[in-house]
């Protein structure tokens, strides 16, 4: 393991220490009762109805649910991006390393991204800028924590990091553009960049969904190994239960803006407590056969049947 960890300590300048005593659990990320709504032409639409979720240091936590359930908006709030959207109304607590995110201004939030927290999105090729070489973009990433880093030093460091993600010819790749490389290669580069500053939290929103299954499987395994080496915690967002099962230590299941179930991955998968989790699992076709899953009722509302013992939700609002 070659990385020194420039961006990972609590002592890194620009962000003031918030109310540490509130974060008694010692969680790296602690989200409590998060609500989100959007103001629009047709009125106010609620999207998150009181989400609570926490991640410890080095832990891999998955947020799984169908499209539109509120996964990406949750990620964007943690990253401090949705706070810039004028129509969004956010309430609740988000604490990162003991700092209350709502007490930060836009530039303080920006200072966190790419340093103490970083992100990986769905499509590696569109995440990289086609106009600049990989080496140029890598240098920009490294300069987020060390402004004065020389180009030569940055290239050396980048080559080292590309080597750790099994890129055989880093020098050639640094001089290339993303469109000259395969999707799998770009995904490896993205992983290396996202971990370059050894962030304490990585947010991966449907990573590699745009890639082929074989490449996706390989790069997920790589990401799994790399976060372990960097001791980086992950908020892993996915709609694919199989992928979640292979990647995460802990799982939160989100349904229409509410967490309906949480637990250790193995226990959630072996004995799902909530009807929605059970339906999701039953709906996945098995590679061992057994026929097309029989999912009834198009309009089933999983908030309706009562919540099970390990569901954190006490009641519903309309």
């Amino acid at each position: 393991m070659s990385a020194n960890r420039p961006g990972s300590g609590e002592d890194t300048g620009s962000v003031k220490n918030g109310s540490m005593e509130r974060n008694s659990s010692g969680a790296l990320l602690d989200i409590r009762d998060l609500h989100l709504g959007f103001r629009g032409y047709t009125g106010y639409t609620k999207v998150l109805h009181g989400i609570s979720l926490s991640i410890n240091r080095g832990q891999r936590v998955a947020l799984v649910g169908e499209s539109g359930s509120g996964k990406s908006v949750t990620a964007r709030i943690v990253l401090g991006l949705l706070q810039e959207t004028r129509t969004a109304r956010i309430t609740g607590d988000v604490e990162f390393q003991g700092n209350d995110m709502s007490s930060l201004n836009a530039s303080q939030r920006r200072a966190l991204r790419g340093t103490r927290m970083s992100m990986i999105f769905q499509d590696p090729t569109s995440a990289l800028n086609p106009v600049f070489t990989i080496g140029y973009q890598f240098t920009e990433v490294l300069r987020r924590v060390d402004e004065k880093l020389s180009k030569e030093a940055a290239y050396l460091r980048a080559a080292e990091l590309l080597h750790t993600v099994s890129i055989p010819d880093p020098a050639r790749v640094l001089d290339a553009y993303s469109f000259q490389l395969s999707g799998g290669m770009n995904q490896r580069i993205i992983i290396a960049m996202a971990l370059a500053n050894s962030p304490s939290l990585l947010i991966a929103d449907e990573p590699g969904t745009a890639l082929d299954v074989t490449v996706q499987a390989q790069t997920l395994q790589l990401m799994h190994d790399m976060v372990a080496t960097h001791n980086t915690a992950v908020l892993f967002i996915s709609h694919n239960l199989g992928v979640v099962r292979e990647f995460a230590d802990r799982v939160y299941v989100i349904y229409r803006g509410r967490i309906v179930e949480e637990g250790a991955t193995q226990s959630v998968f072996e004995s799902p407590g909530h009807a929605y989790t059970r339906a999701l699992m039953a709906a996945v076709p098995r590679v061992t056969g057994g026929g097309i899953p029989d999912i009834d009722d198009e309009s089933a509302d999983f908030h309706d049947p009562c919540f099970t013992h390990d569901s954190p939700i006490a009641g519903t609002e309309s």
Partner: peptide, 16 residues
């Protein structure tokens, strides 16, 4: 390779 890259859920699938 195509078959083994499928993300799986159950113990049966893991064994397979």
């Amino acid at each position: 390779q195509l078959i083994s890259a499928v993300p799986v859920l159950s113990a049966e699938e893991l064994n397979f």
